[in-house]
Amino acid sequence: MKLTPGTRLKSAACDTEVVVVRVPSEGAITCGGAPMVPFAEAKPAGVSLDSAASGGTLMGKRYHDEQTGLEMLCTKPGKGSLAIDGRPLQLREAKQLPSSD
């Protein structure tokens, strides 16, 4: 699957949905321990949440991986946590900017 900024993915193991903000150089993206699937496709049956990847995702938070440059925005929260090549993604703290609109 080719990722571009804006590609939407969902977790096979929980309710998590994300949108890709920055594309990784390479790597397999997982949530709850299972490969994430394209938004429009049906989830594979019988995938269960890996307890080792069950930290959960938070709505509206951005997650990133320094090594590959991957950044994703969580558009729907779930029980699984995000990883690339088995490396957990880090929560990107929002830069504190004052409202200007």
């Binding site: 900024p5 804006g6 903000v21 709505m59 509206g60 938070k61 951005r62 925005l73 929002a94 830069k95 900017l97 409202s99 200007s100 609109d101």
Partner: peptide, 23 residues
């Protein structure tokens, strides 16, 4: 992509919610 990128990179999602804020 221009507008969405502006919004998500400058605003904390729901950062103003449940605080009585009005613009």
């Amino acid at each position: 992509s221009n507008l969405a990128s502006y919004v998500i990179s400058t605003v904390e999602f729901m950062g103003a919610a449940f605080d009585g804020q009005a613009t």
